[in-house]
């Protein structure tokens, strides 16, 4: 086990240090980084029922097969990225174990063509929540985020400002997980703080 204290946030260059967790009574959006999440990119044929069952038995929930859908909960879940691609999340530090278990299950199920890639550090997750979170996102995101169109449990690969993101609505507050490439995270954080300025932004404690 590698010493996790050696890990660094992509936001380190922003020197947010003193501002994290500071009370911001006027704030109607809450912005934070959820760093300690293991992520595995999984590719497999969704038509292979045996394989899908094998994955479900490892994960404890089925891989979502419908467009823009997720399964599991905020800590452990799967986001559908495409017709044969998912992002599986686990609490940070458990990704190696899960990676191994998924690989073993795939082999046992006779899956000859499965791809697993550890992408825990390829992206980080910025969380945005609060009554004006949707307004902040609509400043840079062309998706229709109205509750009639995008709800808790929905996810979508899309663009936010000038960054590619994976957007996941995690709560009705509304609350969102914004998965963004490591090297774009600082840019996007600055963008989100700027976009949220008129509503008041509270910078959350980093998990």
């Amino acid at each position: 086990m590698v010493d996790p204290s050696l890990r660094q946030s992509p936001l380190a260059t922003l020197h947010l240090g003193g501002r994290e967790g500071q009370p911001a009574p006027e704030a109607s959006v809450h912005l934070a980084e959820r760093r300690s999440v293991g992520k595995i990119n999984l590719r497999a044929d969704p038509g292979d029922g045996v394989l899908m069952n094998a994955f479900e038995s490892v994960l404890g929930y089925p891989l979502p097969l419908d467009p823009n859908r997720t399964s599991g909960d905020g800590k452990r879940g799967a986001l559908r990225l495409g017709p044969d691609e998912w992002l599986v999340t686990v609490p940070g530090g458990q990704e190696n174990a899960l990676f191994g278990a998924l690989g073993t299950a795939a082999t046992a199920a006779g899956g000859k063509h499965v791809a697993l890639s550890d992408v825990s550090d390829a992206r980080t997750i910025l969380t945005l929540a609060g009554p004006r979170a949707r307004d902040v996102l609509q400043k840079g995101c062309g998706l229709d985020l109205h509750p009639r169109a995008f709800q808790t449990g929905h996810c979508a690969g899309t663009l936010l400002a000038r960054a590619a993101i994976l957007l996941h609505q995690t709560g009705d507050a509304p609350a969102y997980d914004i998965h963004v490439a490591w090297s774009f995270a600082a840019y996007l954080w600055v963008w989100l703080e700027d976009a949220g300025a008129e509503y008041g932004v509270a910078v959350g404690e980093v998990e």
Binding site: D84, V119, A122
Partner: peptide
Amino acid sequence: YLTSVTEQ
């Protein structure tokens, strides 16, 4: 299957 891992 191709997966971009540039940032990983």
